[in-house]
Design a protein around this nucleic acid. Structure first.
Lengths: 181, 181
DNA sequence: GTGCCCATGTAAATGGTTACATGATTCT
DNA sequence: AGAATCATGTAACCATTTACATGGGCAC
């Protein structure tokens, strides 16, 4: 019931951008914009929305659309203040847990081709992601409007990361082939 | 008590490399090798060791050194099998939660200099990391032995990631300066 | 009429982090 | 004498994920 986690800020932020939105739409929007560095599931969105409403950081309006119930949420002034306060705090360092790296690190314990296969899989995943990101980038408005710059920046970060990981994968696969005779 | 998490494999793997080790030494070794993509705290190491022993994946020998108690753990055959089984499974994709990216994404809600400051901080962090990684790389044996290749690979990944993030930071800072007039 | 999308939620389990608790030895 | 390191653990807390649970509308 405390919801001290970061999810609440992600959701406040999304509401700040969307002005008014249902839990379902928030989820869809998160999927299409921040999914590659920040995900939220329904089972965190709905409880967080309830908690935010209780804290009066957002307000709920119950509506219907096409006969289906929809709860629309809007940021309050207090919600916006809370969000801005958080935005001004230094970002905490992420503690990465990269399972692939762990498997590579222990690679000497299994046949080389196992690790190579992991890397090939990863390469494919990265290529898919990279293509996707580049598609999204094409569709982004080239208006250089203040708002769109920020999503472009995060997207560029994703593209750079994917490219750099991809290059590493290719290099690593080559290296492992040489030791595999 | 189930310890189905990934921590158990990290610890099994470390024990496979170190042959015999105490919880304390495992921690030290993790810090000096995988810290930048995989961390473990004492409060996960000790319970996991106890659980692994109960599952007979490792064995404990109680010893003393310099009057201090030390529990030394060794991998059993069953432990090695379990580890190898896991190593052969495809690595699960990490769900990244990058707080900095989230703050950048919502950057339009606060004055530009706030976001620039976050990026400057990140830049400094990355530079520190990069220097550290490059130091470590220098000290790694250049023997091209089978084992050392794997740690070199993960290290190179860290270096590439840091470099790529650093470049992005610099670019992002420039971009934000231009919209800030 | 079947399957997918819209739409909202709860409950339980999992896994991890922080703080707590203790105490000996070695280095400065 | 005091700080840092060696060494092991427990308890409480917390956030997140998975599974469960439900139901209407729309397109094929």
């Amino acid at each position: 019931m405390k919801t001290q986690g970061k999810s609440q800020f992600a959701i406040l932020g999304m509401l700040a951008l969307l002005k008014q939105s249902s839990g379902y739409d928030l989820k869809k929007h998160i999927e299409s914009t921040t999914e590659f560095f920040w995900k939220e599931g329904f089972s965190s969105i709905y409880p967080v929305l309830a908690s935010l409403e209780k804290q009066q950081l957002i307000t709920k309006v119950e509506t219907t659309r096409n006969g289906r119930e929809r709860n629309l949420y809007t940021l309050t002034q207090s919600g916006m203040d809370t969000l801005k306060e958080w935005l001004e705090l230094p970002a905490q360092d992420i503690h990465i847990r990269n399972e692939l790296m762990l498997k590579v690190f222990f690679g000497d314990l299994v046949p080389t081709e196992i690790t190579i296969q992991h890397l090939e899989n990863q390469k494919q995943e990265l290529q898919k992601k990279l293509t996707l990101y580049q598609e999204i980038k094409k569709e982004l408005p080239h208006t250089h409007s203040r708002e769109s710059i920020y999503s472009l920046l995060t997207l560029d970060h994703g593209i750079r990361q994917a490219k750099s990981s991809l290059e590493w994968c290719e290099q690593a696969i080559k290296t492992l082939h040489t030791i595999d005779h």
